[in-house]
Amino acid sequence: MAASAAAAAIEAPIPEGAPILEVQGVTLQYKTREHLITATYRVDFSVYPADRFVLLGPSGCGKSTLLKGVAGFMKPVEGEMRLKGRRIAAPGPDRVMVFQEFDQLLPWKTVRQNITFALRNGGRCSRESDADEIAMSYIRKVKLGGFENTYPHMLSGGMKQRVAIARGMAMEPDILLMDEPFASLDALTRRQMQEELLGLWEETRFTVLFVTHSIEEALLVGSRILVLSPHPGQVKAELNANQHSHANVGSAEFTALQTRIHDMLFADRVLEDETVRRGS
């Protein structure tokens, strides 16, 4: 079923200049044991092909929930999400998720098997030999040649994330969904991974929807940034960030945008503090 959906997507290319992903008026809610929580409220945005689209916001702004919605793990209570014009109803291999957690690699499979598993079950390859070939080429792309037969528990955090990214890219999905993929890495590895991701994007120009809470990371990785307000997440701004990279960190322009976003997010905090003070 998933395979045929993916095949249909390939047959019907989207028209020139049309968005690949449209999110319109999406409200997402989830239940905890005691509360019904509205994570996002009437969020709109559109992602175009080859975008590095960043969802940025403080914790509690529903950005991860929004990503899970796009992945099909959650259904919106209001509004709709369309991928290439088709309504998103369930998870599928045309939208591959890369998580923050290291256990996203299946520990019972080697690096290569983790990728071929995705390719075979996701309906991209029916023959193991084809899957092997694709897996190996992506393993080399993320500079893990020689580690293909290693089990995930032998890898460092950065290497695990590289495998997860290789697996996601090997699927060649319509859109790659990344949920704070570098958040559990140390600062040095994180920077290296950001550069590598940009290098891979330069090579293949995939479309990626990237969630982060770091303003700096949003500026470095993103070509366009959606700034969300906290609790529930609402769109505060949609900004261009294509001109920024590791080369101009600390420049006046970079810092100006960083401050602008910081103020946008911080404004809420001040207001909240004031209402609390007035209330008490």
Binding site: G92, P93, R95, M97, D103, G123
Partner: peptide, 18 residues
């Protein structure tokens, strides 16, 4: 079983017995 691994399974199209 971790929710992440469950989501990975569903993401790559696994359902039911598989």
């Amino acid at each position: 079983v971790s929710p992440t691994q469950r989501m990975i399974g569903h993401n790559y199209g696994l359902r039911g017995v598989m």
